[in-house]
Design a protein around this nucleic acid. Sequence first.
DNA 1: GCGCTTTCGCTACGCGTCGTAGCGTAACTG
DNA 2: CAGTTACGCTACGACGCGTAGCGAAAGCGC
Lengths: 228, 228
Amino acid sequence: MNWLTPKRLPAGMVAVMCSRPHPKAVRSGRLGRPRSTEADTAILHATRAALVELGWSKLTMGDVAIRAGVAKTTLYRRWASKSELVIDAVAVLFDELELPDRGSLMADVEGVVLQFATLLERPETRTALMAVVAESTRDEALRSRIRSAIVNRQKTLVLQGRARAQARGELPYEENAESAARNADLIFDVIAGAVVHRTLVSAEPVDQAWAHSFTTLLLSGLTSLRNS
Amino acid sequence: MNWLTPKRLPAGMVAVMCSRPHPKAVRSGRLGRPRSTEADTAILHATRAALVELGWSKLTMGDVAIRAGVAKTTLYRRWASKSELVIDAVAVLFDELELPDRGSLMADVEGVVLQFATLLERPETRTALMAVVAESTRDEALRSRIRSAIVNRQKTLVLQGRARAQARGELPYEENAESAARNADLIFDVIAGAVVHRTLVSAEPVDQAWAHSFTTLLLSGLTSLRNS
DNA sequence: GCGCTTTCGCTACGCGTCGTAGCGTAACTG
DNA sequence: CAGTTACGCTACGACGCGTAGCGAAAGCGC
């Protein structure tokens, strides 16, 4: 019903080359009053604030509109659903993830684990990440949006870390491109999955000690696990 | 508001020794018309069916009541929220998880990974698991319910698998009880986290090949990772 | 300056779900 | 039998959703 209204733009239009394609991007061409960029930032800021105070389930579109000082209709002109709005609001937080060269594969992994954990300590990401992932299990469009807005950014770090480790001689170069990609995906799922599960399911902190133990396990394997 | 109504029972009452303590358990003592156990099973069955057809977000209490052939008020007499209902409905699916002895640690891990993956292929669990976890980030009571109903059951498998591996001589006995517990938690987060992340975030299948690669990585570590 | 186009804030609306109250009836206990 | 609790049913207020319609504002091309 919603998917066929003229408000929806053809799918191709979203895929234009842009760092953050707007959900309901209007052709930036010309004609008419341009969209207020202040409204955009105000809405996203208000969404994060609402996530902190209310959490995902109690966040309402009307409330966000009021916080942003914007009419509710303005909100719906840009985002078709609460999920898409929240994804965009949270996605920018993942931009601060980076991989400073700490000199060794071990230190690099530990660093990225702690960085990711710090991100997941924020109430916005805690409450939003799992919620949108849950929503995406029944919505392919949402899933691809999460992928491009959040997941792919994290995956880059894995590729970067591997390249460094290979340059240092800590990891072998993989001539087979396919299996190299598979391995990167595997490692990404292991790292991100472990941190997320520890944080949100087990609900216990990812501190220095845990990061160290995890990294040791990841590098050396289960058979070499010893008491610390 | 909801948390203070007389409907809510004191917290201790839920923690009675019972395999599956009912959310709003009434003292099984006596007096008056007993609760219909058929209604219980019908509701949980209807909830799973609704999850399959509608998914978490579109599931409504009224719809579940109709499917179960039960009044909506009957539903609310037993479960205070949609989250608690869904947890109970899904929890039984996790009971079928077990750890058959396959002769080696490697085979055991691979087996449990594939079993867990099979469980996550079901639409009920896919859509429900992440949703209730997301909900639990702001609700400690919900989190402990998930832990006792779902997570702890899985964690047992890790302990079981380790004990077997130790008996086989594949893993060393850990004299330090604390670090042994920490290691078990770590391994659990790594295994469950990786499978969940692969399935629900990366949205790619956990097949035999992936399970094998993952298990190899877990046992031997990153440094020994080679092309397959 | 003038039209044309699009977005803006605002109000109002229908719809669906929520969770509860109140009733009469059914089931079980002593 | 009386006492107690669960049941099905109806009705209700509250609230969030997403949209329609309005006049005003802010750009563009002329």
